[in-house]
Every structure is written in structure tokens, then in C-alpha cells.
Simulated assay, not measured.
Amino acid sequence: MTAPDLRPVDVLTVVTVADVTPSVRRVVLAGSADAVAAAGPTVNLLVPRVGDPDPRWPQVARDGRIVWPTGAHGIALRSYTARRQDPVAGEVEIDFVLHGDGPAAAWASAAVPGARLAVAGAGTLGERPAAQLLLVGDETALPAITRILGEADPATRGLALVEVADAAEEQPVPAPPGVTVRWLHRDGTPPGASSLLADAVAALEPFDGPEVFAWVGAESAAVRSIRADLRSRWGLGRAQHHAIGYWRLGREMGR
């Protein structure tokens, strides 16, 4: 029974599963309009164990805290970016990177229509409108980069640097005409062991003008290096950049 100050989490059901690249699986989930509207752009996913037909879902307090059931429950909390959400159709689209053997990658690898997961809370991407954009990320940040570019003003200019394993991992990324999407291939280097993103940013001349915003999402060490460059050499203040470690080497790739 749900206490008066708690509510159930929003449970979503898998509608379709598709492999868009060798390491990225796109899962479309269905739920109520309210649940879908609340599920993003950055959403807390409650991921059950593979094959668990009746997960012990937590509840949500009035202040947004997740209240976990006592004892073992087998639910993992992971933060992801919804690549697309459509409250009218009641759909949320999430891309899972299948590197590693963490709970989210395992769930996505086994996901079939009818499987369930839940959402509890959401956040923003941290982006801000600007005349010039620098977007930097690996495959875990590609849904966020795609959303940012899809919502950008058509007159926006800039560059998106995206690190992936190889050419087979490239995806269509619609962008304003003035924004170039540049792919960087690891070509056998393991995720998190490459300096491609930091080197690519270091090789750039800082954009001219005050209307510049940089957004960075990748492995934590790479993000720290790029953030330092943006603050020092580029001279970007707090309001001009958002840099977040999406995952850490040795841990499951998220987002």
C-alpha cells in the first residue's frame, strides 16, 4: 500500500527494439502521457534484473526522493538521455550503449517487446541557446548532442565533435546548416583510453565573439581535460559551458 506522501514510479513497456549500430541499441518505450512528458531529456531509469517478471519497484516521495523497498530488490538506478519523447503518442526513445556487462547494458541486450522498466525523476541537458555552439562527446553523449542540434536555431553556427569506435558507429545527426558534425574514430582503442576528444578541442582555435556556448559529455577524465581548456585557453565562464562526466573508466557506460 502506498503511503499518502509517496507515489508509484512510472512504469514503461518496451514497444520496439532496434540495433542502430553494432554497439547501440535503440529501445522505444510506451507509457502514459504524463510519464512520457516527465521522462527527460535526462531521466533516471530504474532498470530491473534481466528476466525478473515482477520487480520490486521503489516509490517516489513528494520532494522527488526515490524511496527504496527494504531488503533485496534487484533494481539499478541509471541516468540516461531520452533521444526522443512524444507525450501525444506516449513514447520515449532511449539509446543504450552495449559496452560492458553492467545492469543497463545487460537489460538492453535482452530487451524484447513487453519488457518493462521504470522512470523516476528527470533533469535538463544544461544547454543554453547561443549563436555559436561547440558540442563534444562520445557515443554515450550522442543522444544529447542530437537533441541539442535538433532544437537549435537554424542560424546557429559551430562544430560537433563525436568520438565513436569506428565508421560503423556513425549515426545520422541532423544539424543546422552552419554546424559541422565531425566524427573521431578510436579504431581499436578501448573506450575511455583515447585522447581523441581532448586533442581535437586543443587543436581548435577558440571561437570569436561573446555568443559562444560549449557542451561536453564523455568519460570523466576526458571531460576534465576539455573543461580546463575551455576555461583557460578559450576563456569561457560558467554561463558559457556545461561539461559533465557521463561515465568513468572501469565502470559501466551510461547515458
Rank of each mutant, 00 (worst) to 15 (best):
P8D: 07
I244P: 00
G158M: 07
A122T: 11
W57H: 09
G121L: 07
V216F: 10
L249W: 00
R231H: 06
S79V: 14
L46G: 05
P174H: 03
V216T: 10
G192K: 13
P206M: 06
F213P: 01
V92F: 04
R49D: 14
L184M: 06
P87S: 01
V223T: 11
P69L: 09
M1A: 13
E169K: 00
G158P: 12
V11A: 02
V119S: 11
I148Q: 04
A175S: 14
E163T: 11
E91S: 04
P206H: 06
P176K: 06
A239D: 12
D5W: 14
D153V: 08
A160H: 03
A118T: 07
E139C: 12
T21C: 02
A228H: 14
E163I: 13
A193K: 03
D86T: 06
S23V: 13
L197F: 02
L12R: 10
A115E: 14
L142A: 14
T146Q: 06
L98C: 10
E211A: 15
R251M: 05
V92Y: 07
A33H: 03
L46H: 04
W183T: 11
W68P: 08
V67D: 14
G188W: 02
L196M: 02
R49Q: 15
A30G: 15
T42C: 01
L135Y: 09
A144K: 12
I94C: 08
T21K: 03
V136T: 09
A39G: 04
L6G: 02
S23R: 15
R56H: 12
P177W: 04
S79M: 10
G209M: 06
A111S: 15
A144W: 11
P4S: 13
R83A: 03
P87V: 01
A228F: 06
G250A: 13
I226W: 05
L77I: 01
G254F: 09
G192S: 13
T124G: 15
A130E: 03
D208G: 11
G114N: 13
E151S: 13
G31S: 08
V201Q: 07
V11L: 01
T21Y: 03
A118S: 07
T21P: 01
A18S: 13
Y246R: 12
A155E: 13
V112F: 00
P55H: 00
D63I: 05
D19K: 05
V17R: 04
T180A: 15
L117R: 03
G90Y: 02
